[in-house]
Simulated scan of single mutants.
Amino acid sequence: MVKLSLPEHVAIIMDGNGRWAKKRGLPRIAGHKAGMNNLQTIATAASNLGIKALTVYAFSTENWKRPSSEVNFLMRLPIDFFDTFMPNLMQNQVRIMITGFIEQLPAKTLAVCQRAIEQTKNNQGMILNFAFNYGAQSDIINAVKLYCQDLQQQKVQLAQLNEQTFSSYLKSAQLADLQNPDLLIRTSGEQRLSNFYLWELAYAEMIFVDEYWPDYSVVDLKRDLQRYSQRDRRFGGLDKKG
C-alpha cells in the first residue's frame, strides 16, 4: 500500500452548522452543538493520522453581526468544549492554541481559553489551533501597525521587511514553522475564504466539499487527505517534468 503524502498543517472552515440544523427542523444552535461534537471526532482522527497542526475557523470577527442569542451560544461553546473534552485532549497530548483578537472575548470565554492553553502547553502531540474572533484583514492591518511601531522605535529597518519578517507580526506566528496550512478544507459547498488566513493560505491546496460540518466524517477526512496527496505542489516553480 502506497503511503500518503500527508499535509503537516490542515485548516478547516467548519461551515454549514446552521443549514444542517434547519434541514432537520432544529434551531441553529443545535447545529453548532453538533458541530462542536464533530470537532472532537475529527481532531482525534487528525491526531491519530499524524497531522501536526489542525486549525479550525471557529468564530470570525464578522460573526458578531449575528443575533445576540446565537453569539452568546457561540461564546459558550469553548467553555463546553474544553469542559467536556479536556481529558481526551490531554490523553492524546493535543496542544491548544488560539489565533485571534481574544482580548475582545467575554471574560468567561477568555478565561477558559487561556486555561486550556496553559493546561496543554507542554503537550507534545498535534496542535489544535482555534481561529476565534479572527479576521484576516484585521490581522494584516494590525501586523502593519505593529511593524510601523517597531520601525518608529528603530527596532527594525524598512529594508528588513520581507515575507518572512511580516509573517512574524501575524497572530498565526505562534505556530512557528507550521504557520502556513498545507491544505484548506471548507465544508457545506461554499467556495470562498470568508476572510480567513488570506496571507497564510497563499500556497495552500484547497478542497471544497458538499458535506455540512456536522456530517463531515473521518471517512471524508481520509478521502480529502488522499486527494491532497495527489496534488502537485510547485509553489510557483516547475515540477521535475517541466
Rank of each mutant, 00 (worst) to 15 (best):
V2I: 12
L4H: 04
L6S: 01
H9P: 00
I13V: 12
G16S: 15
G16D: 12
G16N: 14
N17I: 05
N17T: 04
N17M: 07
N17V: 04
R19L: 10
R19I: 11
W20M: 07
K22A: 06
K22S: 07
K23V: 11
A30G: 13
G31K: 11
H32D: 07
H32T: 07
A34E: 03
A43P: 09
T44W: 05
A45M: 05
G50P: 08
I51K: 07
K52F: 09
T55P: 02
T55E: 04
Y57W: 11
A58P: 12
A58N: 13
S60D: 03
T61P: 04
N63R: 07
R66A: 14
S69V: 12
E70L: 01
E70G: 00
V71W: 02
R76C: 03
I79G: 00
F82N: 03
T84Q: 14
F85M: 05
N88P: 06
N92K: 07
R95G: 06
M97I: 08
M97E: 12
T99Q: 07
T99V: 08
F101W: 08
I102W: 07
E103V: 10
E103L: 14
Q104A: 01
L110W: 02
L110F: 02
V112F: 03
R115I: 07
Q119G: 10
F130V: 06
N133V: 04
Y134D: 00
Y134I: 02
A136R: 00
D139E: 02
A143G: 02
A143S: 05
K145P: 05
K145C: 01
L146F: 08
L146E: 01
Q154S: 13
K155L: 06
V156F: 11
V156L: 11
Q157F: 13
Q157R: 15
L158N: 12
A159N: 11
Q160K: 14
N162C: 10
S167D: 06
S167I: 09
S168F: 12
Y169V: 09
L175G: 01
L175H: 01
A176F: 15
A176V: 15
L178F: 07
N180C: 14
L183S: 09
L183G: 05
G189Y: 15
E190K: 15
Q191M: 15
L193D: 01
N195K: 05
F196S: 04
Y197F: 14
L198P: 02
E200P: 05
L201F: 09
L201P: 04
A202P: 01
A204W: 06
E205I: 05
I207Y: 13
I207T: 10
F208C: 00
E211C: 12
V219L: 14
D224R: 11
R231G: 06
D232M: 15
R233P: 02
R234S: 02
G236T: 03
G237V: 04
L238Q: 12
K240V: 05
K240E: 08
K240W: 10
